[in-house]
Design a protein around this nucleic acid. Structure first.
Lengths: 349, 349
DNA sequence: TTGAAAGCGCTAACAA
DNA sequence: TTGTTAGCGCTTTCAA
């Protein structure tokens, strides 16, 4: 049985109110009593009971962070930034992993209400995002990586259409004119990246092919394999996130194709492994840290001022060019040395 | 202001006790009242207050999961398994990320006491693990991936020395006789893997070189670069986890060496990217799912029976052989096709 | 600066 | 089967 504030009070010979004050520092306590209380805490091994504290004080000091897939480095990076900022503001974080599963999302959203969290940062599936605008939720909510259809929720996302355009322009400049894209079907990001891809292709006169798949390596791999079997081989593949990118690489390799000689490959998310595959993969790098920190800022501002209109913040990515998108023959072949080095295209916004 | 059980009781025209019973299902409630209560819950938008429930019922229904680094796929995989089992038993999980930082470990351990968690699964740094045996902790604790010096805590880990031996035997069989190893210095696993590496080398008459580094890509990369500059080049490198393995690959590539022609590479953790790098990397695959599930089982058994003596469970890994450890000349060169396929050596325990 | 006392929302005796 | 009541551990008036 763990000891309570009562035990501390008894041992220190003071009232529980004084102990409470000593602990919270909200009101002055005389040095003499302070010392006795500290001694008593040591003696009893007292630990405050957070449930009691939260119940009585009516604020949880906790925010919820509901993410789609912790195996995705994007979300781990964001969670680190969020936890950092939260910690600096004396807030706890409850971290939840939905596996892109709307049922789990519903469960966690309900849990957040029951925990009486102060606010939530959430990367919803498209399905749940749909419902968010017309639902009334018991806490301030900031979306991350994904948006709701009518933009009625605060949100922080990559500037997806600009990023897609960057990628398409780069491929076009390298001489590619027949490009296939594979996009995640679970999130608004996948859609936005697809739309930017299509728009840029139209503008540049590039012939495209696009497929939507669940956000899993295997799904991308299978889809790419099928497309490679069925149709004329595209000159380049684009994948809308790190998971799909890995699936593309696997399928391309399994088909015995060499990157970039047989086919170019590019995608989203500058994960560590992308530089190690073949001549390195050309990718869009997202400002992970900034996304997390911005989401927390928006949430804190919303808490301070609930009347604020909803805000959608777009953060620019950058295009990290590597050997996987070397210039297409008959242009000059990029030599191994140069193609290995990372050259950076900054987004022209 | 959210509504309480009192509001529901008032609207339904029953006592709070009846509402409580209806919610918990612990005692029978007449269908008529049940219906009225359900209607009242809908009408009021009632959500139970978990803080109040935990305070009163004196059990949190929550376990803590304190992990060293969520960027490491090992820990994400384990967390998924743990959450799975926990959920099946109606337990919530608080997930905490220590960044291999003893200060954060102390903070989270304290937090677990304040949350009055039912139990904790913990992957401690070596530094914290040292203190665990002589500390008395307010909850049942199961260690994972890392052990305490005197084995006074329940623990679930890979059979590290057997795994190291497998790796060394494989390299030896492929003809390698001068091998360098790089090991994480933060955890007991790094130590155990080092010790197994050294023991096997001695037994097999292999010349070795070993270094300990912090568990970061950059640390491994730097260390390998220095070793490559300073001394006679080893024929093979071994890395004690996925992070260090990536650092080794980076450094080897930066030195202009080709795997496996110039140097063989092998390591721990069968992460998705390892099959995509060059001819694929030979790795020890840990039974991630089993580690997580076993940890939860041990914890549940400990909760059911606190008097049980501490148990240390070793789970066997398997060696996934890929092209990065092709047989050393003058033996026959493994051709590309064969070296790509994953052949599996099952651990002979 | 300190203490007494009320009560946060809930569960669990106990009584009816 | 239902209601009454006490109280989990804490914070926060209010008075002294």
């Amino acid at each position: 049985m763990s000891s309570s504030i009562k035990d501390v009070a008894r041992v220190a010979g003071v009232s529980v109110a004084t102990v409470s004050r000593a602990l919270s520092g909200v009101a002055a306590v005389s040095p003499k009593l302070m010392a006795r209380i500290e001694a008593a805490i040591g003696e009893t091994g007292y630990r405050p009971n957070l449930s009691a504290r939260r119940l009585r004080s009516r604020h949880s000091g906790t925010i919820g962070l509901i993410l789609a897939d912790l195996r995705n480095p994007f979300f781990t990076a964001v969670s680190r930034a969020v936890e950092d900022v939260a910690y600096q503001h004396g807030l706890r974080v409850i971290l939840c992993n939905t596996d892109e599963n709307p049922d789990k999302e519903a469960i966690y959203l309900k849990l957040m209400e029951e925990e009486r969290v102060t606010g939530v940062i959430f990367a919803p599936t498209r399905q749940t995002a749909q419902t968010l605008d017309q639902r009334d939720i018991g806490f301030p909510l900031v979306l991350i990586d994904r948006v709701s259809p009518h933009g009625k929720q605060d949100a922080v996302v990559l500037d997806n259409s600009a990023a897609s355009a960057m990628l398409m322009e780069h491929l076009h400049a390298q001489g590619y004119r027949r490009i296939a894209g594979i996009f995640g079907n679970a999130s608004s990001s996948g859609i936005e990246r697809h739309d930017g891809f299509v728009a840029a292709a139209l503008r540049l006169g590039v012939e495209i092919q696009a497929a939507f798949v669940p956000p899993q390596i295997e799904a991308a791999q299978t889809e790419v394999r099928h497309l490679l079997e069925r149709s004329e081989r595209p000159q380049a593949w684009v994948a809308s996130n790190g998971l799909l990118l890995m699936g593309v690489v696997r399928a391309v390799r399994a088909a015995g194709l060499v990157i970039p000689e047989d086919v170019a490959v590019a995608g989203f998310d500058n994960e560590s492994w992308t530089e190690l595959v073949g001549p390195g993969l050309t990718v869009i790098e997202q400002p992970l840290e900034a996304i997390g920190r911005t989401a927390m800022s928006i949430l804190l501002e919303r808490l301070a001022n609930p009347a604020l209109p909803p805000r959608k913040v777009l953060l620019g990515g950058r295009c990290v060019v590597r050997g996987s998108t070397a210039a297409l023959a008959p242009g000059p072949q990029v030599d191994a040395q140069v193609s290995h080095a990372d050259s950076i295209l900054h987004q022209a916004l």
